[in-house]
Write a protein that binds this DNA or RNA. Structure first.
Length: 186
DNA sequence: GCGTCGATGGCA
DNA sequence: GCCATCGACGCG
């Protein structure tokens, strides 16, 4: 039985966490079944000064979890129909999170997890899990040191409004994965 | 293969 | 009035 990723890991800043989560395994225990998937694409939202980050709007009902302690799920609805799964990062109050954008199913289970909306839908992650402790037994991560991803970085997706922040390479992905979205052509 | 567009609801 | 998305549709 592999050790679950613990709280100290999540306390790293969002940029570090986003990179370090590439290749890790997401586990969801749901209705007596267990779903595992290898994370292959993430994005870092690095604090209130980052105009692409929801925390730049300040503390609101929605962003409250982002300003809480690291290692909790931040799940929100976008475009009226897609749930986005994030992991709160950094020191408590720093307003950082990592968006999980794509993964590959593991363990004989087949699904298309190529995109943040598709991933949450297939894994059954919903807003009811907003604020869930990821060191618990329902939704958690485990490291896979045997797996060696080829990590690249690129601009984040869908944040054209964010001024200079839209250029920052805060998206990380495993170049060896076919599930990666918006692969840069250069 | 690529660009465009509509769905759909919570949020400030 | 947006929006950390997705899939359908029309090209030629």
């Amino acid at each position: 039985m592999v050790q679950k990723i613990g709280n100290s890991f999540y306390k790293h800043d969002a940029e570090t966490l986003a990179r370090d989560l590439i290749g890790a395994i997401l586990v969801h225990r749901r209705r007596g079944r267990i779903y595992r998937a290898r994370i292959v694409e993430t994005e870092a939202y690095i604090g209130p000064h980052d105009l692409a980050s929801h925390s730049s709007k300040g503390r609101t009902k929605r962003t409250e979890v982002m300003f809480g302690p690291a290692g909790f799920a931040y799940v929100y609805l976008i475009y009226g129909m897609y749930e986005m799964f994030n992991i709160v990062a950094g020191k408590k109050g720093s307003g950082q999170a990592v968006l999980i954008r794509a993964a590959e199913p593991l363990g004989g289970w087949d699904a298309d997890l190529s995109g943040p909306g598709k991933l949450t839908r297939a894994l059954g992650i919903t807003r009811s899990m907003n604020g869930l402790d990821l060191t618990g037994n329902r939704l958690y991560l485990v490291p896979d040191p045997q797996y060696q991803p080829r990590i690249w970085r690129a601009k984040r997706i869908g944040i054209e409004y964010a001024g200079k922040w839209k250029h920052r390479k805060l998206r990380f992905f495993d170049d060896g994965s076919a599930a990666v979205t918006h692969r840069p052509s250069g």
